[in-house]
Amino acid sequence: MKRLSAWYGTGGIKRAGPMRFLLYVNMVAIVLLAGALARLYEGEPLPWLEQGERGAIAEAPVEPGPAVTGPAEPNPAETPAEPSAPLTIEQMMALQLPLPNPARMPAEPEAGAEPEPPREIVILTEGAYPPFNYRDGSGALSGFDVELARALCENIEVHCTFAAKPWDRLVPALAAGEGDAVIASMLIPAAGRESPASSPGLILSDRYYSTPGHFAARRNAVPLAATPSALAGRSIAVQAGSIHQAYVSMRFPDAKLEIFPSLEAAQQALAEGKAHLLFGDRNMLLRWSASPDGACCRLVGPAYGDAAYFGKGAAIVLRKGDEKLRDDFNVALAALIADGTYARISSGYFSGSIY
């Protein structure tokens, strides 16, 4: 007690006063510093900085703080009064938001856009030249020319209709705009051979079948070599006045020609054994040998394709100015040959391909 009273009595209170004051100052400083750090964390400038220094701190990048686990309360000052504009793709990428899927978005119809209807073209043919073009039992146009034309039109995705015209009216009808193409076994012009396709103002496709000459013989006959010496003295049936008669006379001068008024008569002579060979159009002989009447006979030897006699084949005939359609037909024809469609169509009329 004496020590305690002595301490209070001898200036202890005076010594304790300054220490309490320092504790008070320290506590005030800690409180102010904690508040300043909190304001600085929230992005507000410290109150004791000058205006320039505040701006510098405001512009300085702020490191992101720790992740907030609880839901953040909206800042009323930042809440827009009206709905904001949609985010751009760049903003969505910056915020790592999922981008909209175009496949799931409803397509906006184009104003005034309508599907273009398929082009319609008219194919002119004769309808009186079997097996290439003719009318079947129901009166509908049929034959190799017609079936191939349909396949070509399907390949180039155009709608085709057919119109039959007499042979001598096919080219005039094409020139008058009554059709867009002639597919009627019209031969490609060649020296010494007349063809309506040689008229001015016309263009031709690639050949869609060839027309060589060929020999036929009886199936049980011993094949003969197709040489002038081997055929010397042999009887060859031909149609009178035909290019096939002219060719045999030129190529096999020592052969014995049996001349008949028609190809059918020459075929009958071969079937009855009245001639060793028959020389005629390859395509017609293929057709005949596949029929009951021609079952006796078959084609032998090579095909003879001398253009001066047998031409370059048959082509599609179009008007000048329709080069695009002609080129489309050429591309389609090559495609039908490559995928086997041509061979399938040909086998329906002949015993082999006529390309």
Rank of each mutant, 00 (worst) to 15 (best):
N283H: 01
G241W: 04
D293K: 13
N283D: 08
S289D: 04
A266N: 03
I243M: 11
R234Y: 05
F260V: 00
V248I: 15
H244Y: 15
F310L: 04
I236C: 07
A314D: 05
D306V: 06
F252N: 02
P253N: 00
F260C: 02
L286I: 11
G313I: 00
A307F: 07
G305I: 11
D254F: 06
I243G: 10
A307L: 09
R282C: 12
M284K: 13
G294I: 14
N283L: 08
A240F: 01
P261E: 07
A290Q: 11
G301L: 14
E258K: 10
I236G: 07
L285H: 06
E258D: 12
L278D: 06
G313F: 01
G313A: 02
Q268L: 14
A255M: 06
V238T: 02
Q245K: 05
L278N: 09
Q239K: 06
G241R: 07
L270R: 00
C296T: 13
C297I: 07
D293A: 15
G280F: 11
C297V: 12
L263E: 08
L257E: 02
G233C: 02
F252D: 03
G294W: 09
G280S: 14
H244T: 05
A295R: 11
P261S: 09
K312L: 10
S262P: 05
Q268A: 14
A269T: 01
S242H: 04
R298H: 14
G301Y: 13
A303M: 07
L257N: 03
K312G: 04
D306T: 10
Y247A: 05
A314L: 07
A266D: 02
A266V: 02
D306P: 05
G305T: 15
L257S: 02
D306S: 09
D293E: 15
A308R: 14
G233N: 12
A232H: 05
K274V: 02
S249N: 08
A266S: 07
G280V: 05
A308T: 13
R298V: 14
L257Q: 03
L263C: 01
L286W: 12
A266R: 00
L277V: 06
P302M: 10
R251V: 12
Q267E: 14
A290D: 12
G301K: 13
F279M: 04
A275L: 03
G280Y: 11
I236V: 15
L257W: 02
A303Q: 10
S262F: 07
L278A: 10
K256E: 15
K274L: 08
